[in-house]
């Protein structure tokens, strides 16, 4: 544990949770999310293309035991201020599986990492990945009422997992 690490409240915020993103393809979803981060000032305009390019080269869908989730991210140089943008999609889109791009995953949750401080995010990332492995938590997020509820579920889960 390093006290210098970024905390949950510094990376995950209710206003950075989209509870009903409408997108027809993964590129559509990624473009909308990345554009939002540019508008909010967290990312440079180059972030959008960098996210799409990275997804083509290295797919970010994770074949979790329960609901599948994608964790798109790209180089720190495109980020001004670190944040994690979480989106639940109205309808699933297809992502390719990290590590085995022949496998297609039906994804309704995307956790976009816009990260700058490489050495201060390990604890938080590991905790979040543990949360995303939990089928019950992801199922609760899928039926949550709104962004506030999704945020609360994530916060409680992260507390439970020891952050």
């Amino acid at each position: 544990m390093n006290d210098n690490n970024l905390k949950f409240s510094e990376l995950v915020k209710p206003e950075f949770v989209m509870h009903n993103l409408q997108a027809s393809t993964r590129e559509d979803a990624l473009s909308q999310m990345a554009a939002f981060l540019v508008e909010e000032g967290n990312c440079k305009p180059t972030f959008v293309e960098a996210i799409l390019k990275r997804e083509r080269a290295h797919p970010s869908g994770l074949p979790m035991p329960g609901p599948k989730i994608a964790i798109p991210h790209t180089d720190a140089e495109h980020v001004r201020q670190s944040v994690i943008l979480f989106a639940r999609l109205q309808e699933p889109v297809e992502f390719l599986s990290m590590g085995s791009p022949d496998d297609k995953l039906s994804v309704r949750m995307i956790s976009m990492f816009a990260l700058k401080e490489k050495n201060r995010i390990g604890d938080m990332l590991e905790t979040l990945i543990n949360v995303y492995q939990n089928e019950e938590i992801l199922n609760a997020i899928l039926v949550a009422r709104d962004s506030g509820d999704i945020f609360s579920i994530l916060r409680e889960a992260v507390e439970k997992y020891g952050q």
Binding site: H58, T74, D75, L125, E126
Partner: peptide, 11 residues
């Protein structure tokens, strides 16, 4: 190794 060496490989 991972795509960007920032998130995935850290975990």
């Amino acid at each position: 190794a991972c795509g960007t060496a920032i998130a995935t490989s850290t975990v």
